[in-house]
Write a protein that binds this DNA or RNA. Structure first.
Ligand code: MN
Ligand code: MN
Ligand code: ZN
Ligand code: ZN
Lengths: 122, 122
DNA sequence: ACTTTAATGCAACTTAGTTGCACATATAAA
DNA sequence: TTTATATGTGCAACTAAGTTGCATTAAAGT
């Protein structure tokens, strides 16, 4: 997965700031918050948030709200659930498919909260 | 369900402020945020949050973070999922049981985000 | 080069929730 | 009934994630 491909046909200018954000997210193993990312990028936080908002509109990035009042971002892939640990606040993608139906509702996002593997062993 | 019963054996003093909060939550049909509740209670918000934190520790109340950066509170019952509408920001309890297993993880809370029945009809 | 449009940095702002502190209330001991 | 100790409350100041207004800069299109 490369950046050129991500923004192709999305009608978006590839500035230095945007490249920095996408570069970081592409290589991340987990969804990241602005706080996780800020040390590695050079732009102002206003620029970060304005760009990430644009990425979300263009379906390049998606995000969800965690337990710790922070928003977590990842490169948009096929929708999958996320796990948030209430002990250590870590966030993980759950690749296992979870089937879920609720008639009348459209489910776009599933967030599971609880204790992660690591915190369960303690 | 009455308040006496809720706080029984929980080692908690039943002050006016606390009664007001529990009274409101007991009669609510959905989880409520501080914002939802504040017009009906007379205490300062510091008191509200300090008490609700105590209720959570004593397992009288539980809460979850919604989409709109607000925390939603309800009287603690047997754990069940919640649905948050990304369009109208409404919050609902899902009484239907959803079976879910992830080995190694303890799932304490499930939050589904998407479009509610009402917003799907529009 | 000139015009138009979008992107950026900075500072000020917003808002849910938290904290320090003085005062009030309750319970327990003397 | 007084005194001590602990707990609860209101108020104001604070925190922290995210947003917004505005002046400046960098792109693109002509
Ligand atoms: Mn993910
Ligand atoms: Mn519920
Ligand atoms: Zn954990
Ligand atoms: Zn809705």
């Amino acid at each position: 997965m490369d950046i050129e491909n991500l923004v192709k046909e999305k009608d978006i200018k590839l500035t230095t700031a945007r490249t920095e954000i996408l570069e970081k997210l592409i290589h991340a193993k987990k969804p990241l918050s602005y706080d996780d990312i800020k040390k590695d990028i050079s732009m102002d936080k206003a620029t970060f948030y304005r760009n990430i908002t644009k990425f979300e509109k263009k379906m390049i990035v998606n995000s969800f709200e965690s337990n710790d009042k922070k928003r977590y971002f990842e490169i948009f892939e096929s929708p999958h659930p996320h796990f948030v640990c209430v002990v250590c606040d870590s966030v993980e993608c759950i690749k296992k498919h979870l089937e879920f139906k609720l008639s009348g509702y459209t489910i776009e996002n599933i967030i599971l909260k609880g204790k992660c593997k690591k915190c369960n062993q303690i």
